[in-house]
Design a binder for these strands. Structure first.
Lengths: 336, 336
DNA sequence: CTGAAAGCGCTTACAG
DNA sequence: CTGAAAGCGCTTACAG
């Protein structure tokens, strides 16, 4: 493998016997004032030399890069990849492309990626934020780089945002269970050592829904703990004086732990324990019994996020920032 | 929101009362010949102005970008995101970052992303290839951009590659079933309209394993069809003269379809139908009965891919290209 | 210890 | 229809 020198526009110009300007015109498809002979000659040389223009040079002149960043909190979440797929498809239709970056739940990494995306001069960024330090996101706003938040919000930052109506999600879960006569409903979610919007709002929604359904709120039935502690906590609360007869899983990862425990310990669902999960999961139909879930309208959320970002990128118009809340939907199956 | 002019190195230099060169020295942390007073002054101004150097300009001079591309065939596959997570972590330790791009199973998109990554001058690319047109990948080789293939190979391209020993995977599946006395073993996988390495190799491995186990090969028990046709095909083959008593699912998506069918139709597993899936899936333990799977050593594969790429990027040394084949592992559960 | 100058590979207004 | 020239925002060898 011989290390070949990178081909530049000058090489093409020289070999084609025209000026760099003309080659540049060709690259940018401004054929208007170009003889077809010149055009063909340039085309041939470009193919021969396998020339690819250096975007770094181009972007130095032309301010638009036609690239947006999608910075996800954690790429392992199904929600992230599904939104990515949808957003990308919309971008495609607008001649844009996406670089996906993964914060891996690490605020430090997120900050580095934001710096990198700024440095690469992306036209806009869709962020599933992990950090709670608003100064980081302020860089973007200072640089007038459009951003759209998805799934989570950050205190102190006002921008276009797209997320589930988490209160409604909890309400749907609680009220559905209440109708079936459940009174002792446990709520499990991941930690909120630092504020994570969906977790906080879903807990809050749970509390309000309990009140609305005239059920007694028992704080000891609310668990906000790390993944590996869920099974122990569940085991524990089964020995309460009044153990729960129903569980709401705050997200897909939590649901997985709960189902593992229930299966391992032969707790019959829904007879001994009703289960309802927020987030639709691939295996909801597969479990025995199939699991009732509260689904996010991912398709619409992805489209809205893409649309918001594209609007900001295209026109300079300054409509006020809006936080869009999407209504959840219950998918009734056999676990309640 | 007032559109602020982008801050450049000149702005910083002017405000700090030094030359651009000095600011540049500061940015690149060459403090050796810099008075601490100058250093502090520059630092202060950078913070005040919120200055972020433009990487496009930098990369025009400095050939290394410290960024690699990870181009996945389809970001919805768990394998992709798990490998991304692992690779990224290794890159992090080497001061590099990753831009993830999603081909969405579309060779045209893949080509565009390759062009974009070249244009952005990434230092290297990890590819889960979708296309079968080797000329596309040849661009990269022409440009001396290191590439590592993961999961799939491309005819006509020789480069470092990391993938499962697919023949061994099929062999494990077949021989395990054969030991349990199964003779009529069906194999389901997705289409091979154009060559997709794991699918082809797993079918091939299945055939060889059947021979090795002295079982009669029945071509009509091999299904290479699209996802939505799997359930019908399965239904069909249950009415064969000699229906299969065991099924091997060629990957996670196929397994999902098969389990859906079996559950819907109350086919008892493993009594009436043994099932074994290639690819470990999240819900393997959750299904009733739990599903025996053939797992890829994803951790090791991700690390190897990262290591190979970093080696090529760092040293110019020219060890020959190697295709690494990782041994699969069987995770025995209760479905066989 | 710091600055002036050339150059990276493009684009674009302008001249002809 | 095409080319010469300036400039985008950096870096770096060199001079002082």
């Amino acid at each position: 493998m011989n290390v070949k020198k990178k081909i530049t526009i000058s090489d093409v110009a020289e070999k084609a016997g025209v000026s760099k300007s003309t080659v540049s015109q060709y690259i940018n498809q401004r054929y208007k004032y170009m003889s077809s002979e010149t055009k063909e000659r340039i085309e041939r040389v470009i193919n021969e030399l396998n020339f690819r223009p250096n975007d770094n040079a181009r972007n130095l002149k032309v301010k638009k890069t036609k690239v947006v960043g999608i910075l996800v909190a954690n790429i392992l979440h199904t929600l992230s990849t599904e939104i990515i797929q949808i957003v990308e498809d919309r971008l495609q239709h607008n001649g844009m492309k996406a670089f996906v970056c993964n914060s891996a739940d690490d605020p430090e990494k997120e900050k580095e990626y934001i710096d990198l995306l700024i440095a690469k001069q992306v036209d806009g960024i869709i962020i599933f934020p992990v950090g709670n330090d608003y100064t980081v996101y302020n860089y973007l706003i200072n640089y007038s780089i459009p951003i759209v938040f998805v799934d989570r919000l950050v205190d102190g930052i006002t921008t276009d945002s797209v997320l589930l109506d988490n209160h409604a999600a909890s309400f749907l879960a609680v009220s559905t269970l209440a109708e079936k006569g459940h009174e002792n409903i446990a709520f499990f979610t991941l930690p909120i050592d630092f504020p994570v919007t969906p977790r906080i709002e879903r807990i809050d929604g749970y509390k309000k829904a309990m009140a609305a359904c005239q059920l007694k709120l028992r704080e000891e039935l609310i668990f906000s703990i790390s993944k590996d502690k869920i099974q122990d906590a569940l085991q524990n609360c089964l020995h309460f004086n009044k153990p729960p007869t129903a569980i709401i899983a705050g997200n897909d990862l939590v649901l997985l732990q709960i189902l593992k425990y229930l299966k391992k310990n032969n707790v019959s669902v829904p007879e001994k324990m009703a289960v309802i999960g927020i987030d639709n999961v691939l295996y909801a139909d597969l479990y025995e019994p199939s699991i009732t879930t509260i689904a996010q309208p991912i398709q619409q959320m992805g489209l809205k996020a893409a649309e918001l970002l594209l609007d900001r990128i295209k026109n300079e118009s300054q409509h006020p920032f809006i936080t869009y809340r999407f209504a959840p939907e219950i998918v009734e199956r056999n676990s309640i």
